[in-house]
């Protein structure tokens, strides 16, 4: 029991630290690395909640595959250090205040709810709770439609990414495509924007 509590606080502080790192760090590359540590801490919390399969999927799919995609795109785009909004910007002040208000509101709603089971560790569960075979059985029986829809969604997303990121003829060369020039003039090219 004590071990569980120690693990919860270590993983929880790791998750909060990683999340703060994502938001605070200036360089997007370091933000991605902070998110990786956040995801691994979250996987530990999933293990505490007896979601073994999801913890493994979190580490393999998220921290493994999706984050590699992020690192590639940050390296490709050239993650330049960006300043936050200029001082005195209304959103830079109101954003954290709004987030804090949201946190207070959610906490009051959760703690103030009359849900008695919130103060227990939960129902007694079988030792196979959250194991891959239980989740797999649920996915292929009760949630078959959601499973198939998710696979179709992944297919659509893969095709969409290829269509979005492919090289279009004429767009690489601004002089060759008159339509592109107007867009460049409207949004003023990257050289002028570099601040």
């Amino acid at each position: 029991m004590l071990f569980e509590q120690i693990l919860f606080f270590v993983a929880g502080l790791g998750a909060i630290g990683g999340a703060l790192g994502v938001v605070m760090l200036r360089n997007p590359f370091y933000s991605v690395l902070a998110l990786v540590s956040h995801l691994i801490a979250l996987a530990l919390l999933f293990l505490l909640l007896r979601a073994d399969f999801l913890a493994a999927a979190q580490v393999v799919v998220y921290a493994g595959a999706v984050m590699v995609l992020y690192v590639f795109v940050v390296a490709y785009v050239g993650g330049s250090d960006e300043p936050l909004r200029p001082e005195g910007g209304a959103v830079a002040v109101l954003g954290p205040i709004f987030a804090l208000a949201l946190f207070v509101e959610i906490t009051i709603a959760v703690v103030g709810s009359s849900l008695g089971a919130l103060d227990t560790t939960g129902e007694r569960i079988a030792s196979s709770f959250g194991s891959p075979d239980e989740i797999g059985k649920l996915l292929l029986t009760d949630f078959l439609v959601a499973f198939e829809a998710a696979s179709f969604l992944l297919l659509v997303a893969a095709v969409g990414a290829v269509v979005l990121a492919r090289k279009r003829r004429g767009l690489e060369d601004p002089e060759a495509a008159p339509g592109v020039m107007s867009a460049h003039e409207a949004i003023s090219g990257p050289k002028e924007v570099a601040r």
Partner: peptide, 12 residues
């Protein structure tokens, strides 16, 4: 964690 993420979406 949700609120940290919301603050990031609003400020970055």
């Amino acid at each position: 964690i949700f609120c940290i993420g919301a603050a990031g979406v609003l400020t970055r």
